[in-house]
Structure formats: C-alpha cells, structure tokens
Design a protein around this nucleic acid. Structure first.
Lengths: 176, 176
DNA sequence: TCTTCTGTAACCAATATAGTTACAGTTGGA
DNA sequence: TCCAACTGTAACTATATTGGTTACAGAAGA
C-alpha cells in the first residue's frame, strides 16, 4: 500500500543515533548505513529536527544526535514526524453527490479510516526507541559505532530481503 | 502515506451492490457513482471476483452483484482483495550489511510492521459490509438504486472534501 | 582563512495509480 | 441469425509521490 520507506528510514536513522549514544553522527555516515544519499538523510533530519527528535550542528565537527533519551521517543513520535497522511486515502476525485451512496460514503469511510489510524498509532505509541534498540541482536554490540564512523563500508550487496508472515512485500528487489 | 484510493473505491463499489440488493449493476453505472472511468471499475471488479466477493455476468443484461450476503463480507476481505502490501514498506534498497544497525534493523522493523498490520486487520475484520451500509444516512434510502441505475447524474462537482480529526489529508483537491 | 560540516534548491529518475481508447468475446433478444 | 449491450483486457498516457543527484550558500572549528 505504501510506496514510501520514510518511516523505516527514520527509525533506522534514530536507532543509529541511539546506538551512537551522545556522539553526533554525520549525514554521510548515516547515509552509508541506510545505503542512500546524504542529502536524503539531511532532508529527513530536518523534519526530525522540526519535531524536536534530533538536534543538528552545522560547521566543521558538526552532525546530528538525539534531542531526548531513547526511552522518551516512541515510534509514534517518529511516524508523526515523517508521515503526513493516514494509512489510507479516500477517493482521488469526489464521488457523485447525486448518488445516495456516493454522497455519504465519504463520511462512512472517514470513520473507518480514523479507527484504522488510531489502531496503528496505539501500536506505535507503545514501542520506544530504546526498546527498538534492545531488539537489535546484542551479539553485534562489540562493533558499536565510534567516532571513526558507523561501520567500515566495503560492499553494499545482499541485505534485508525477507518477506513477512503474511506474504506481503515490504522490500523491493536488491539493487541491480 | 498511501497514494492509493483502491480500498476506498472497493468499499464504495461493494456498498453500492449491497444497496442494490440482488440487482446486477453495470460498470458504467458504478463508475458514475464513484466518479471515474468504467474500465477502472471493471479492473477492480475482476480483482474482487478473484477473491469471490462479487460475481459478474458478461453479455447483454450482464453486470456484477455480491457473491455473498453483506453480513458475510468484512472490510478485511475487501482490503485483502485490493491491497497487495502492508501499511508500510521497508527500505527501498537494503541497508549496509557491514553496519551493526543496518544488518539487523530489518528484522526489528519487520516485527513492528507485522504488529501494525495485525492491528489494522483486526479493526477491518470487525466491520461487515452490512454495517458499513447501515452507517450511510438512512434519510436517503427513499431514492435507493433501482433497475434504471444508481442515480441520475447531472453534475460531478463538490463532494467529500472534509479533513479527518487528526488533520491528515485523505482527499485530494477537487477536480479542476 | 581554510576545511568540514549542514541546509536547501533544482532537477531527474523510478514507481505506482488512475484515466482513456480500443477491441475481442459473451449473452439475450428481435 | 444477427444485433445491441455488456464484460474482460491490452496498450498507452497522465499524474503524483518518493528517492537520488548535483550544486552551492552559510556555519563553525582549527
């Protein structure tokens, strides 16, 4: 349904910062971990800064870090910072107002979509960034990001390609 | 988040059929109510027929009607018939496997996205098409669709433009 | 002042959905 | 047996959103 990976990338970015503790991260290093362009990351960091989730510093030795402790940031905060719409959309063009169904279906659908959005939000509100970090495999903690950067980058192949339990696609094919 | 109105249109179409009772509806009449092209409707009807929600008849006097009673169709059935992906997507390109966060974030996100999808599905599973029809304003029932068609169509202006309670956009601007 | 960062504009590419035309095939009835 | 009215579907275009890229102004430390 969603063609956007904005939420996934935002969680990734903030998880990196929680992982790096107080150390400010450069957009270039974050982009290496996310496997995208630094400008894409900086654009997202601006949105996250507007929502008071990160603080950035310009200039030499600058970078971005969390504005609050990871346990004070929920996935709902992140979701609301980067996703401007609800889960579904209504009709692209308004239905026919001369039809008894068309004229009222919008009201019915709005109620349903509100229920859906509320359900999504309550799931996300119950997961903190700290918990998300805790779910990362602890075995790799020994190579945690230091001031030298997030990780040595040798190649960008393979990655997260698993399908989810319901069989719906959540990742696109690996880079060609 | 979603740029698709497929779910909204599908609910609209099936609500029309529930409203019309056993009377088969022509794609052209449905399209008039939805305010779109008959081919868009026929494409969607094919998907709904594959999911055994409607049955269609070709030829003269043909059309489509519900395959089951409205109380035996849930919004989850409709959602699964027309939406191929979950609510969110993961990264467009796989994250960096050499980064301790990048290599594991997909697993964490998959779990979260599964929780979100489950929440959405349980909301939709608890609303039947019959209930959706019941939520339509009963005051307009007197002009219910008859064999002559869904409604007389004079103009296609105005429509459902209200924003939802959380302020997120669910309709695009009115036709220009 | 030089270097290294962020912030941001401008543009292009990729993807998904919707809209449109056209036509083959099916069906009921004159 | 033909015709008119439907569905099913291919092919193409239009539109919108997101992501990727280059470029550069401005901030800040050395």
């Amino acid at each position: 349904m969603s063609t956007s990976s904005r939420f996934a990338v935002a969680v990734h970015v903030l998880t990196l910062m929680a992982w790096a503790d107080e150390e400010p991260l450069k957009s270039e290093h974050v982009a290496e971990s996310v496997n995208t362009n630094p400008v894409v990351i900086r654009r997202m960091l601006c949105e996250l800064a507007e929502s008071k989730l990160v603080v950035s510093q310009t200039g030499s030795m600058g970078g971005s870090r969390l504005a609050r402790q990871p346990e004070e940031i929920t996935l709902l905060d992140i979701y609301q910072a980067v996703e401007s719409r609800g889960v579904f959309s209504l009709h692209r063009h308004p239905p026919n107002p001369d039809c008894p169904v068309g004229v009222n279906i919008g009201t019915v659908l709005n109620d349903v979509l509100d229920e859906v959005d509320s359900a999504v939000e309550s799931v996300l509100a119950n997961i903190t960034l700290r918990e998300a970090v805790g779910r990362l495999k602890p075995c790799v903690r020994t190579v945690a990001a230091k001031s030298a950067g997030v990780a040595g980058v040798k190649n960008l192949s393979a990655g997260v390609g698993a399908k989810r339990k319901n069989g719906k696609e959540h990742t696109l094919a690996a880079r060609n």
